[in-house]
């Protein structure tokens, strides 16, 4: 079976006045038709760079990448016919045009007939729940609604390979869930389709993705199914601790033996910090408690947590996505 996406030792270097930045460092990955494949990584990990290369928007510095069997450098025009991309926070389109007019315009970039275009627009407007707003100008939509329109736009050509970069950013919880179900249904109904999903939401990746790649500093750390990743890391101890505001001092905990990773989230309103720690085993817990006490902060709450994709991520990368 032909791979939907294949990269071989893909590298991308950006040059700036400060020097060179290696955004991608020898990425090799394969995604098969019928898969929802997740890319997980902190900001600056290289997820968007990889997505842009696969969407023919950026050239690699070295290595090769193939989408639908076509080389992204040599055969970009063939790739363009079968892909599309929705990036969260971006709202391509024209503010003075209505939802329907915008979708029609983007359908014309793919040469759709009016009949095809009307059918597709109606399906997508229903799917993203914009029926009541179809004749509303885009500049009168809320940011969440614009993002729904953006998702609909990315599907206007019924792409065989869909790239979604933080697609549920800015969407309310209920609607984000609807979109996830819709994407899952698309893949189920047509196993030739592929989705490459970049997301910050671990639960989203866990729920939707057949496999995930954890990427950090331009390198892929692991590629696995979420279930397998969780089982591989099930022996580790995940600790959730809420303490009075600790700030950057939280990083001191990473120096303790047996602490594999730490994610610290400050809550400035409550003046607290929530620590998510991944420990090798339970014997490390007393050392963690002592270290927190030595910092002079108050511990409000401590509990053990189940292994999730987030704790796996913290364990592998050493820090959270924040």
């Amino acid at each position: 079976m032909k791979e939907s996406i294949r990269t071989e030792d893909l590298t991308r270097i950006f040059k700036s006045e400060e020097g060179e930045v290696k955004a991608l460092d020898g990425i090799s990955v394969t995604v098969m038709p019928g898969e929802i494949f997740g890319l997980l990584g902190p900001n600056g990990a290289g997820k968007t760079t990889l997505t842009k290369i696969l969407c023919t928007l950026l050239l690699p510095s070295s290595g090769r990448a193939f989408v639908d069997g076509y080389d992204v450098v040599q055969e970009a025009s063939k790739i363009k016919e079968v892909i599309n991309l929705a990036s969260g926070g971006e709202t391509p389109g024209y503010g003075m045009l209505t939802v329907r007019e915008n979708l029609w315009f983007f359908s014309q970039l793919y040469g759709l007939s009016n009949e095809q275009s009307n059918k597709r627009m109606s399906e997508l407007i229903d799917a993203v729940g914009l029926q009541d707003k179809a004749k509303e100008r885009m500049n009168r939509l809320s940011s969440g609604m614009k993002q729904r329109l953006n998702i609909a736009r990315s599907m206007i050509n019924d792409p065989r390979i869909l790239f979604l970069d933080e697609p549920t950013l800015g969407l309310d919880v209920v609607f984000a869930q609807q979109i996830r179900r819709y994407i899952e249904r698309l893949i189920k109904e047509d196993p030739e389709k592929t989705v490459l999903l970049t997301t910050h939401y671990m639960a989203e990746a866990d729920e939707m993705c057949d496999r995930v790649a954890i990427i950090d500093k331009g390198k892929i750390i692991t590629v696995e199914t979420p279930a397998r990743l969780k089982s591989l890391f099930s022996k580790e101890v995940n600790l959730l601790i809420e303490v009075s505001f600790i700030g950057s001092r939280a990083n001191e905990l990473l120096k303790l033996k047996g602490v594999k990773g730490l994610s610290a989230t400050d809550n400035l309103e409550k003046n607290t910090t929530t620590l998510k720690l991944v420990l090798e085993d339970e014997s490390v817990i007393p050392d963690v408690i002592s270290a927190i006490k030595e910092m002079g902060v108050t511990m409000h709450l401590m509990s053990k947590a189940e292994t999730t994709l987030e704790t796996v991520f913290i364990s592998l990368v050493g820090r959270g996505l924040e």
């Binding site: 928007l57 025009s77 363009k80 016919e81 709202t91 389109g93 970039l109 793919y110 736009r153 050509n157």
Partner: peptide
Amino acid sequence: EDGNLEAFFMSPASKMSL
């Protein structure tokens, strides 16, 4: 600035036509 250029470059449409 409107975020459309990326969508144009990613599509198979002729850029000169646009």
